[in-house]
């Protein structure tokens, strides 16, 4: 069976040709459909760079990258946009919701660029918000939501378009422990129930053990990669429905 993602000898250099700084050097990585994995490593080791390449926001300088068997390292900007639109959902540390738009409008965003009708967009957005427990906050704007609630909306935006892959760069980095736990529970549930592949970046070993595989990266190279030993996997604390009195 073909893996979902297949990176072979991927390197990334920043800067002018002569003074190029390598952020990734010869990364080989395979991720199967339905995996739940963490990328860990010290600051500046190249985790975000790798995520950008996996998410088709950036192209490798050398090496090949296949998504579902298709080589994306040579695609045009518009073709990459189409892949991001259909296959990838991003979750950011800082949420990156549009402040002027409601929760529902934020979740609709990827569907607009897919050309779906307004009615269909609304319906899919509402369903995605219900999956993350935000069905009762459709018309709230980001400023009216707590950090945890904003991250739920961001996850809803990532899953609304039914992607094969969710990329989360330090999704709990800006949240307190308890809220981070709730967010991880959502990722675990989305991965288990919807079968979506989830790749997260984290600094926290505890969060790492809430996924089933850990890739360790240092100085732009993968130095360790393996499944979590049996029995070490931690289920995140069951998510309570967000308190009715969340930030209003």
């Amino acid at each position: 069976m073909k893996p979902l993602l297949e990176l072979t000898g991927v390197s990334k250099f920043y800067g002018e040709a002569g003074l190029a700084v390598p952020a990734l050097r010869g990364v080989d990585l395979r991720v199967g459909a339905g995996e739940l994995l963490s990328i860990m490593g010290p600051s500046g080791s190249g985790k975000s760079t790798l995520m950008n390449i996996i998410g088709c926001l950036d192209r490798p300088t050398t090496g090949t990258y296949l998504i579902e068997g298709r080589d994306v390292s040579t695609l045009s900007g518009d073709e990459l946009a189409a892949i991001r639109n259909r296959k990838v959902g991003f979750v950011f540390q800082t949420f990156n919701l549009l402040n002027r738009s409601t929760a529902q409008e934020n979740v609709e965003l990827p569907l607009i660029y897919r050309g779906l009708s307004l009615g269909q967009r609304r319906r899919q957005a509402r369903e995605a918000l219900e999956v993350v427990g935000m069905g009762h906050r459709l018309t709230h704007r980001p400023a009216q939501l707590s950090g945890g609630e904003q991250q739920r909306v961001a996850i809803a935006r990532a899953i609304a378009g039914d992607p094969s892959l969710i990329l989360a760069d330090e999704p709990t980095g800006n949240l307190d422990t308890r809220t981070g736990e709730e967010i991880m529970a959502i990722f675990q549930r989305v991965n288990a129930e919807l079968g979506v592949t989830v790749v997260q970046v984290t600094h926290d070993p505890h969060r790492g053990r809430q996924t089933r595989r850990i890739v360790l990266i240092r100085d732009g190279r993968i130095v360790e990669d393996g499944p979590l030993p049996d029995g070490e996997f931690l289920a995140a604390a069951p998510e309570p429905a967000p308190a009715g009195g969340g930030a209003q």
Binding site: L57, R84, N85, P110, Y113, G161
Partner: peptide, 13 residues
Amino acid sequence: REIGVRKAVGARS
């Protein structure tokens, strides 16, 4: 930032 978000979720140039 809004433009970045839109591009990330699939807006073409």
